[in-house]
Each structure stands twice: as C-alpha cells, then as structure tokens.
Amino acid sequence: MDVKALIVEKVKEKFGSSLEEVSDFRDDLCLTIKRDQIVPLGNFLKNDPDLQFSMCKDVTAIDWATRKNRFTVVYHIHSFKLNFTLRIKANITDESNSIESVTSLWKSADWYERETYDMYGIKFVNHPDLRRMYMPEGFEHYPLRKDFPLLGIPGSLPFPKKAE
C-alpha cells in the first residue's frame, strides 16, 4: 500500500472532523489540523505501530501578514519505519498566538519551539523552558514577523561603549 494513502487513511479515520486539509505538492504530503488537536495527532502518529513517526525534524511558523489568521505553525516529522517525512500544519485562529507544545512527545522540539518563539513570538503552552534562542534577553521584537524591518529598529540592540 502506498505510504501516503496509508497515512491519510489512518489519520482520517481517527481525526476525521479535525483534519482541515490534505495537500500533496511536489510529492510532499501535508496535513492541516485544528490547533487544539496537534498533541493528540502527534501522539497518534508517534505511537501507532504502523507509522512510528519517532523524530521531529523541524518546527517553524509562517507569518501570512495580511490574512486574518496570521500565523501557521509547521511541523516536519520523520518516520524511519516508513522512510517518510510528513508535514503538519496548524493555523492559529485567535489573538492569543499560542499553541500546545509538542516537547512531551519529541524532545527535539524543545529548541525548535524556542526558536519559533524567538522569531515569531508564538507562545508554546507547557514548554519547559520558553526563552529566546538567538536574540539577547530583553530584546522586545520578533524579527521574522513581516512587520519587522530587515535592518532592524535603531536602538533596539545596544552597542558596547565606544572606544576612546
């Protein structure tokens, strides 16, 4: 049986109503799920004996800037059993900019989620250590948001004292 068909069928069976969209562009399978179902879905994909998505490769977000639901969180998870990388998307539908953390399922998501928080300001609920990853503590902006200028905001990052 085709791997993609297997995954879609299994997920549809379990999460039929929460599955918003299934897309397949350039041979990349992508499932869009309701935001509150991300941890149950991850749990199912990881622990199902036929799927075993045991590694989380990446967590990031997309800022759509002009859309009403501005942020989409994107996960890439990998199964060594199926030799397949699956993409999951979850749209953030309200102003809280928050989503449940998946660190309880995959430890590697820890830093990816911190990075996403640093760059987009998306809060991951139940994350053990949600700090900034790259930018210094005390920096107030979120650089990868579309409303942040490429050259930064003057004065937001201090210089060391100038030499004599």
Partner: peptide, 26 residues
C-alpha cells in the same frame, strides 16, 4: 533541509533552514 514557502513571486515568502549543527547541539 530547506523549507520554502512560495507565493508565486520572485522572492521566497519564507525560507526555513533546518541545520544539522543546531539539532546536534541539543
């Protein structure tokens, strides 16, 4: 890994670099 989001224009709408050193440092 490179994750591209394209909106049909000449610039990528988003590029995410999945860098191995970052994961290995974890």
């Amino acid at each position: 890994g490179f994750y591209f989001v394209s909106n049909g224009t000449g610039n990528p709408w988003k590029l995410k670099i999945h860098s191995p050193s970052f994961c290995n440092l974890q």
